[in-house]
Amino acid sequence: MTPHTHTLAPLAPRRPAGVQPVPGQPELVLPARGPVRAGQDLITAQQARTVTEQQARHELIQHLGMPMAPDELMDEFADRLAEETGMLYGFVNVLLADQRFVGLHNPPPDSGHLILGRTMSLEHGWCPAVVRRKKALPLYDVYASPRFSGNYVVDAVGTRSYVGTPVIHPETGIVLCTACVTDPEPRTRSDARRILGAVKEAGRDILHTFSDTTR
C-alpha cells in the first residue's frame, strides 16, 4: 500500500505593512494556526511572533535614527546608569536577532571583574523577558527568584542582581530597547526600588532623545 502524503499549498507571507525584514532573518509564512515554515525549517507560532516583532523593531529603530551598533551617546547613558545606581555594569540593549549592547559600561580593566563584549544570545540574560512582558524587572537577588535564577549569566558572568526596564515607543507600543544594570552582589528590596527609579528615568531620557522631532 502506498503511504498517503499531504502536500502543503504555498502561503503568502504575512507581516505588518511597511515592515522590512531584518538582515539575516528569513521571510516568514504565518498561517492562522500550527507551525510556521521559515525556509525549510518549522518554527513555532511564538518564534514567528518574535521574529515579526524584531522586524517591526528594526524598522522603527531605523526610522527614529537609533543606533544598532556601539554608540558614544548610548555609552554615556550606560555610564550614567552605572554611576547613578552604583551597579558594576550598565547597558542600553537593542534586541534583534541577538542582544546588542549599543551602550555599555564595564568596570575598569584592572578591577578583576569580567569585561563584557557587545553582543549576547537572546537565550541569555533577563532583557528578553523585559521585552516580552513590556514591564520593568527588578531582581534584587536572582537566587530569590527561581523563575529567573536558572540563567546562563548567573554562572558565566557571576550576576546576582539585575534591574531593567523597557524603552517603549508610545505611538506603536514597540519596545525599542532596554535600559538595565547588573552587579555581582545582591541588593536589598529597598535598594532595588531606588535603582529601578534611576533606570526608568534613564529609559525615559533615551526615548526622549530619539523621539524629539526638534533635534
Rank of each mutant, 00 (worst) to 15 (best):
Q46E: 10
P128M: 14
I43Q: 01
R37Q: 03
E123P: 04
I115E: 05
D71N: 12
H58P: 07
N93Q: 06
S111Q: 12
A69D: 14
D79P: 10
G39Q: 00
A82W: 06
G103D: 10
V22E: 00
L104A: 03
R132C: 05
Q55E: 09
L122V: 03
L116F: 11
D98E: 15
A48N: 02
D75C: 07
L114Y: 06
L42R: 06
I43V: 10
Q54H: 06
A48R: 00
M74R: 11
P23I: 02
L30P: 01
D110C: 08
G90E: 01
Q54A: 11
R37W: 08
V36N: 00
L42T: 05
V51M: 02
L28I: 13
P21W: 03
W126H: 10
A48L: 03
L95M: 12
V130F: 06
D110P: 09
L95C: 10
P109T: 15
G125A: 02
Q62S: 14
L42N: 05
Q62E: 13
V102C: 06
P21V: 01
V94L: 09
E59G: 07
F101N: 05
R37P: 02
Q55Y: 07
A17E: 10
Q46L: 12
S121F: 04
R33N: 09
G34A: 06
A82S: 13
D110S: 12
V94K: 12
M68L: 15
A69F: 15
T52S: 02
H124C: 09
A32Q: 14
A97C: 12
T85D: 08
R100C: 08
E53Y: 00
A82N: 11
H58E: 07
T44W: 00
A17R: 13
R118A: 04
L81N: 05
Y89A: 04
D71G: 03
A56I: 12
H105M: 14
G90I: 01
R80P: 11
L42D: 05
Q20G: 04
P21L: 01
N106R: 15
H58Y: 07
H113T: 11
L81Y: 05
E83A: 14
M74I: 14
E53M: 07
H58F: 02
L60F: 08
T44S: 02
Q20S: 07
V29D: 05
P70I: 14
D110T: 15
L114V: 13
N93M: 06
P109R: 15
N93T: 14
P70V: 15
D41V: 09
H58V: 15
L114T: 07
P31K: 04
C127D: 02
V94C: 05
A45N: 08
H63D: 14
S121A: 13
P67M: 03
V94E: 05
R80Q: 14
Q62P: 06
E84H: 09
A78Q: 02
L42K: 10
P26M: 00
F101E: 06
I61R: 07
L64A: 09
D98M: 14
V29G: 03
L73Q: 13
N93P: 08
H63G: 11
G39M: 00
V131L: 10
T44E: 01
V94Q: 08
G117E: 15
